[in-house]
């Protein structure tokens, strides 16, 4: 495969200024989303009070709410979104497949089944203990789907990957559903986790996951240069003296680490890893040193915004109770999926 210079160049003129203005714009947008999500919740708490809860702490009720309830929710949405975005970017770079993403590779379905099995047969309790099983189950599912899809002629083409992933997700999902229904008096904790949401995760649980997020994200950033080369084709990468197998393994490990930790913390949330990196690549081109961090930022912004919408729906009385963000991401994600399905399938 010939290297096409333009693939590495940003597609839009705006891309040229990314090195300077880009990070600043992204960070400001992220900060605005984060503060807004702590302010515009089910009940309004003014911006200034939110800022004061960190800068000028006192024991008022509103500040306590911000620090103990809203901050964890915002941090979870931010980290899960960032992890899913970066994970999708890695997967797409390594496989050269725009549909590769945690949801399509059945990470969510595998994690769910593993957690249900662990809770049922190993007596595992508590969301923090679920994390390991979610990680193992999600990782196994992703490898199985990719392996199955790459069998035969043509390798893991986008269409084969999407169909295999869907079939495998349905398969795992039906087992999960059967187990949940057959044990309908237990597993309440699992059910809570399975919804795919960012509420109800307290600070100590969040802090337990940060080392994994941190390590996997650092790995992703360290690999980003090699992933760029790999995304141009195996020939190019090996021509440049890369150990393709090793890079691919390490990148897969980082991608699964990010997605597995995310699903462990929030439960299954789909389509973030599909939508964000594909949108980011439109602006940055296929340079993964930009794609990976911007996808992380974009994922965080997307999930924080989805959570803002969920809170607005409740605040305006359109929905009584609570809307899990896992139900909102497909509304953005499916159109993107269909766009690629139209382009990829002959």
């Amino acid at each position: 495969m010939a290297v096409n210079e333009s693939q590495l160049q940003p597609r839009w003129a705006a891309g040229r200024y990314l090195n300077v203005g880009g990070p600043a714009i992204a960070l400001v947008a992220l900060a605005v989303c984060a503060i807004a999500s702590m302010s515009y919740a089910e009940t309004r708490i003014p911006f200034s009070t939110v800022l004061d809860s960190f800068l000028n702490q006192d024991d008022s009720f509103q500040q306590t709410v911000v620090r103990t309830v809203r901050l964890p929710r915002t941090l979870v949405a931010l980290s899960v979104g960032a992890a899913l975005g970066a994970s999708g970017a890695l997967m797409q770079g390594v496989t050269r497949n725009p549909l590769a993403s945690p949801g399509i590779l059945a990470v969510n379905a595998g994690a769910a089944l593993a957690v249900i099995l662990a809770a049922l047969y190993l007596g595992v309790e508590g969301v923090s203990a679920f994390a390991w099983f979610a990680f193992a189950g999600g990782g196994t599912a992703a490898f199985v789907v990719y392996y199955l899809a790459s069998m035969g002629a043509g390798g893991a083409t986008p269409v084969k990957l999407a169909l295999t992933g869907t079939a495998f997700s349905l398969f795992l999902g039906s087992f999960s559903a059967a187990l949940l229904i057959a044990n309908n008096r237990t597993l309440d904790e699992v059910r809570f986790w399975l919804v795919g949401d960012v509420i109800g995760r307290d600070m100590s649980l969040y802090l337990q996951t940060t080392p994994y997020f941190g390590a996997a994200f650092a790995g992703a950033l360290l690999l980003s240069r090699q992933v760029t080369t790999l995304s141009l084709g195996d020939d190019v990468a090996s021509g440049l003296g890369q150990n393709i197998r090793r890079i691919r393994m390490l990148a897969a490990l980082a991608a699964v680490g990010l997605a597995g930790t995310a699903v462990a913390l929030s439960g299954p949330i789909g389509f973030v890893g599909l939508v964000v990196p594909n949108s980011v690549r439109l602006i940055t081109g296929a340079n993964y040193r930009l794609v990976i961090p911007y996808s992380a930022g974009g994922g965080a912004i997307l999930l924080l915004s989805a959570d803002l919408v969920s809170r607005a729906l409740v605040r305006e009385g359109l929905i009584f109770g609570h809307v899990p963000v896992g139900l909102l991401t497909p509304i953005v994600g499916v159109p993107v999926f269909i766009y690629f399905a139209r382009r990829m399938a002959r």
Binding site: L318, V323, L327
Partner: peptide
């Protein structure tokens, strides 16, 4: 309308409609 595109688009629309159904259920 290629057969394969029909299936893929169908999978996507299926995911979307079930999500919207769950949202409507919440009302």
């Amino acid at each position: 309308a290629s057969p394969l595109r029909l299936i893929l688009v169908g999978i996507g629309i299926g995911a979307l409609t079930s999500t919207v159904s769950s949202l409507v259920l919440l009302i």
